[in-house]
Design a protein around this nucleic acid. Structure first.
Lengths: 220, 220
DNA sequence: GTCTATACCGTGATAGAC
DNA sequence: GTCTATCACGGTATAGAC
């Protein structure tokens, strides 16, 4: 199956790889072509320019986001919805972490991508809000309605810039799965002060689950 | 007084101006020189390269940070210490917002700056932690000791990337003072769930204070 | 200290042969 | 579809005159 990738797909796949490894900004179309052993001209046959490549990668990302993060269906288990949400966040953050490492820069160079991004983000905000409301309804957290949107934004900001934060704190250390899980853990900690007494143990268990995956790495 | 600026200082001052206006990445040494009506060669007489300029600007920033954010002296008024801290954060965020708009990118291009930054950040973390402990001691917030460091990191992350977050949400809107104050307000909201019942009204007042400064702008 | 002129290089992108 | 040229451009940086 892998052998049957068309050049176009190989370019996309190699791009994600290189972007994640050394950062989107540092990777040029020449690098991508060289990495694949094809000519720059060939790359330009398949894509108009580098932005075009990034945009298509984002499309793939957005598609995954949509399929993986479903709105909570039944009110039965809000905490399960949260967990599945966190898993999805982790997966996407890891798979496309180059994107998270320099988001403002990437967006500022491509108005079209900006549009797409903002559209996706509106959906994300709605879903986060929905999860929060479900958690409140299930009496897992106790929060005033007017604070929900703010908390949702805080969560979104934390998720969006967790990788960037890591890079500012320890630029030499490569991003690995454990460090991404640390971000998931931090999100959980934003909830903690809102947790009801009865939900405390369940949240603690979730916390331990992700703590195990995050390893014992400590921030500098 | 202004007229007596030496060329070197004029370059620094113009650089900050341009960086804030259009972003550090887009501004070249040529732009800076042209903006001042001097030759590129002249600029290179005063600075080795652009990184050198950015580094010196950071030094100025770090100096201000140190003089403006003093560790809380007496335990008498922890909440005052917090307020003065928030004011200082605002001032620096506003004055050097180009720096906050693309931190990972700027740092990744200059290992020397990275070093300086990390050193400064260690001090910041210590001070935030000290303020949090003082707030706990004054019974303004209620928090477990083991959570303090995590909260400090969350606050630091929020402050560091607030401008970046704004830019991802609404890239076309220019950063103004009100939008920076919205970030200050968000920091305050991170505290809210930890506030003791007795401190609630005082925190609310602080909140209103910054809300007024932040205007009624709403996030997209 | 300041200028002009210039060399150098990487990047993005295209034309035209195969 | 793919390759081999090849270019224009902009940014960095330096040399040498004033």
């Amino acid at each position: 199956m892998e052998k049957k990738l068309r050049t176009k797909d190989k370019i996309l796949q190699a791009s994600v790889e290189l972007f994640n490894q050394v950062g989107e900004r540092q990777v040029t179309t020449n690098h991508i072509a060289a990495h694949l052993g094809i000519s720059p001209g060939n790359l330009y046959y398949h894509f108009r320019n580098k932005e075009d490549i990034v945009r298509q990668i984002f499309k793939e990302y957005a598609k995954l986001l949509e399929t993986r993060i479903k709105p909570p269906t039944d009110k039965a288990e809000a905490l399960d919805a949260l967990a599945s949400y966190l898993d999805a966040v982790f997966e996407l953050m890891w798979r496309f972490h180059f994107f998270y490492a320099n988001l403002p820069d990437i967006l500022s160079r491509d108005p079209a991508l900006q549009q797409d991004y903002q559209h996706v983000q509106q959906g994300v905000l709605a879903r986060v809000t929905a999860v929060l409301k479900a958690l409140k309804q299930s009496e897992i957290i106790q929060i005033e309605d007017e604070d929900i949107t703010d908390l949702a934004h805080s969560i979104k900001l934390l998720v969006t810039f967790w990788i960037s934060y890591l890079k500012t704190q320890a630029p030499d250390k490569d991003i690995d799965q454990a460090s991404v899980y640390q971000g998931v853990l931090k999100v959980l900690l934003l909830f903690k002060p809102y947790a009801t007494a009865q939900a405390q143990p369940r949240i603690s268990r979730l916390q331990q689950h992700y703590a195990a995956l995050a390893g014992d790495a400590t921030l500098v």
